[in-house]
Amino acid sequence: MRILYVDDDPALARLATRVLARSDFEVVHAPSISVGLDLFTSEDFEAVVLDHYFESQTGLHFLEAIAESGKQTPVLYVTGSSDADVAIRALKGGAADYVVKTATDDFFPLLVSALNQALENARLRSEKEEADRQLVVAKERAELLLAEMNHRIANSLSLVSAMIRMQMQIAKTDETKTALNETQNRITAIAGVHRSLYTSENVGEVQLDVYLGPLLAELQSANAFARGISVQSDLCQVSTSADKAVALGIILIELVTNAMKYAYPSGTGDVRITLRTEGDGAVLSVEDDGVGYNRTSGPKGTGLGTRLINAMATTLGAELTFGHDGRSSGTHIAIHWQQ
Rank of each mutant, 00 (worst) to 15 (best):
I250D: 06
A282W: 02
V19G: 01
S161I: 13
Y98E: 06
L316S: 05
D7N: 13
I164A: 04
E127H: 08
G330F: 07
G249I: 06
K177W: 01
D51I: 05
P109K: 00
Q57M: 09
R227V: 05
R18P: 00
I33P: 04
P74S: 05
G80M: 08
L284V: 14
Y5H: 14
E278Y: 09
Q338F: 00
D38Q: 00
G298R: 00
D9A: 12
I164T: 11
Q134S: 06
A47C: 09
V28G: 02
E205T: 07
N150R: 02
V256W: 01
L284C: 05
L12H: 13
A84S: 12
G204V: 03
M312V: 05
P109S: 03
Y264G: 11
H52Q: 09
M149D: 10
A224G: 07
G228D: 13
L316P: 07
N294D: 14
Q72A: 15
Q220T: 15
L219K: 10
L208I: 10
V210T: 13
E287S: 15
T331I: 05
G269A: 10
L12S: 13
A87L: 11
A114P: 01
T199K: 03
A311K: 12
H151K: 13
R14M: 10
L124R: 09
V291T: 13
D83C: 09
T277K: 15
I253T: 15
L157M: 15
L248D: 09
E287I: 03
L37T: 00
V6M: 05
V283S: 07
G70R: 09
D9I: 06
T268S: 15
M168V: 08
G249F: 04
I273T: 14
L215T: 09
P74F: 03
Y77K: 01
P74V: 06
V28L: 04
T178K: 12
F107V: 09
E64H: 11
T104E: 08
A259L: 00
D24S: 13
D289S: 14
A118P: 08
W337M: 07
V246G: 03
H61V: 12
Y211K: 08
M166A: 14
S158A: 14
L144C: 13
A103C: 02
L145S: 10
E287N: 11
Q134I: 07
V231I: 15
S23E: 12
A247S: 15
R186N: 13
K261Y: 01
S297T: 03
R272A: 08
E175W: 00
E319C: 06
Y5T: 08
S34I: 07
D9P: 06
Y293E: 07
T199N: 10
E26I: 14
S56F: 09
V35P: 00
L110R: 12
L15S: 12
L252D: 02
